[in-house]
Amino acid sequence: MIRIILFGDSITAGYTDGYPSSKFSDMLKAKLGREDVYCFNRGLPNSTITVALERLQADVLTIEPNYVVPFFGLADARQKQSLPASTFAVALTKLVRQITPEKCLLITPGVVAKDSPVNVRLEEYAQATRQVASTTHCDLIPWHNHMAATPKKMLQADGIHYSTLAYDELTTMLATRFKQRLASFNMISSARQFMGKRQSHDNN
């Protein structure tokens, strides 16, 4: 089984009409279309990057994932005293390195309603996430710019959480990237099986 963990805040938790749902992970699983892939949803409403580091071992590492999608920023940006982007970047870098960069697929945080000052901080976090991806050589989904192009239809009535359309477009982007990774994973697994059988034959 290939284990993919979606790790984030209320957006990852599929927060819809005031309640968490499995929408995000279910849609990704469906688009991958593989029975051997399991998508674990480890979204926690109001989970900041600091909280993420505290729950990383229990919620992510103990599962021994093949891939992890850390998706943070919204809860941090909405804090009364939000983290400076530089501090956010340091924490995200630590998170990526503990998971290992080759297992991570980062997403730049999206946007909220246009009139919200939270968007200023989200833009800063998006830039910080791009920098972390670059310095750690980690894969990245450029979601912030994509969502910012048409924010109204991407949001629920609360102006914060994602509409079904947003999840549909985000999971399409993730599925495209993961299909590339899974193809490589299959090739490596096949090669290892071949070498194992060959070594066993040679030993006999």
Rank of each mutant, 00 (worst) to 15 (best):
Y167T: 01
F88W: 04
D9Y: 03
T135P: 04
P142N: 05
L28A: 02
V132D: 00
L6R: 05
T93L: 08
V111W: 02
S22L: 15
M27T: 08
S190A: 15
S134A: 10
I49F: 01
A191G: 11
A183R: 07
V68R: 01
G18H: 07
D168T: 11
K179W: 06
F185M: 09
A85C: 04
I4P: 01
A89E: 00
T50K: 11
L122P: 00
T50V: 14
Q156S: 08
L56C: 06
D115M: 14
A113C: 14
I160V: 14
P101I: 12
T108H: 04
K23F: 12
V111N: 00
M195T: 13
V69N: 01
A75E: 04
P117G: 12
S189E: 15
Q180V: 12
A13I: 01
L122C: 07
R78Y: 04
F72T: 03
L155I: 06
E54N: 12
Q156L: 14
M147W: 00
A191M: 12
L165V: 09
L122F: 07
G43I: 00
T164E: 14
V68L: 10
T50L: 15
R181C: 09
V69Q: 02
P109D: 02
T164P: 05
M154D: 02
D139Y: 09
N119Q: 09
A133D: 01
S116M: 08
K94T: 13
T176E: 12
I99P: 00
N204Q: 13
E169N: 07
S190P: 09
Q193P: 03
S134R: 14
L61E: 07
I188L: 13
A52R: 05
V112K: 06
K114E: 15
H146N: 08
Q79C: 06
G33L: 07
T93E: 12
P109G: 03
